[in-house]
Amino acid sequence: MKQLLLFCTLLISSCGSKVDQEQLYLLNGYWEIKEVTFKDGTKKEYSVNTTVDFISLDSLKGYKKKMSPKFNGTFETSNDTEPIQIRISNDTIFIKYTTEFNTWEEVLLSLSEKSFSVKNDQDITYFYERYEPININP
């Protein structure tokens, strides 16, 4: 019952800001987390990230992968990927993540060329900005 209540609250709160399905291609690329807002309203800001998320989406399926940027503009990564699938219900876009340990969904709240935000079923909102590599070459 508690999960149903959280889901309904999440669904209702996300209806005000809709993302157009035509924008989903904007998710492709490198993203870094900038802020997390918790259910009680407290926020955690991330000024420096040691990893960024790479998202590759083709139609309504794709994957997310953690990448570690290097100062020369390249990335280190593992072979671990999280398959993702887009689900659209009542004009709300959900991103479904699947790992060998868990499956979960987040509501896509906003999306532009430079940023996006998602909210999970625990009412935690994640704000991402497009990653701009730092290239320090002589």
Score class of each variant (00 low, 15 high):
Met1Leu: 09
Met1Val: 13
Lys2Phe: 15
Gln3Leu: 10
Gln3Cys: 13
Leu5Ala: 01
Leu5Phe: 05
Cys8Arg: 01
Ile12Arg: 01
Cys15Asn: 02
Cys15Ile: 03
Ser17Lys: 14
Asp20Thr: 02
Gln21Val: 11
Glu22Phe: 08
Gly29Cys: 11
Tyr30Val: 13
Glu32Arg: 12
Glu32Pro: 15
Ile33Phe: 11
Ile33Trp: 11
Lys34Val: 13
Val36Asn: 06
Val36His: 04
Lys39Arg: 11
Asp40Glu: 10
Gly41Ala: 11
Thr42Ser: 10
Thr42Trp: 03
Lys44Pro: 03
Glu45Arg: 08
Ser47Phe: 07
Ser47Lys: 15
Val48Arg: 14
Asn49Ala: 11
Asn49Gly: 10
Thr50Gln: 06
Thr51Lys: 12
Val52Asp: 06
Asp53Pro: 12
Phe54Asp: 04
Phe54Gln: 09
Phe54Gly: 07
Ser56Met: 00
Leu57Asp: 08
Asp58Met: 14
Asp58Ser: 15
Asp58Phe: 09
Ser59Thr: 14
Leu60Val: 05
Lys61Ile: 00
Lys64Ser: 09
Lys65Gly: 00
Met67Thr: 14
Ser68Gly: 08
Lys70Gly: 03
Asn72Met: 01
Phe75Leu: 06
Phe75Cys: 09
Phe75Tyr: 11
Thr77Gly: 00
Thr77Lys: 13
Ser78Phe: 12
Ser78Ile: 05
Glu82Trp: 13
Glu82His: 05
Ile84Pro: 12
Gln85Phe: 01
Gln85Gly: 00
Ile86Arg: 10
Arg87Glu: 08
Arg87His: 13
Ile88Tyr: 01
Ile93Phe: 08
Ile95Thr: 08
Tyr97Trp: 13
Thr98Tyr: 00
Thr98Glu: 13
Glu100Val: 04
Glu100Leu: 06
Phe101Arg: 07
Asn102Pro: 02
Asn102Ala: 10
Glu105Asp: 11
Glu106Lys: 10
Leu109His: 15
Ser110Val: 09
Ser110Ala: 13
Leu111Thr: 01
Leu111Phe: 05
Ser112Asp: 02
Ser112Ala: 07
Glu113His: 06
Lys114Thr: 14
Lys114Met: 12
Ser115Arg: 01
Phe116Tyr: 14
Asn120Cys: 07
Thr125Ser: 14
Thr125Glu: 12
Tyr126Leu: 06
Tyr128Asn: 01
Asn137Thr: 06
Asn137Tyr: 15
Pro138Cys: 02
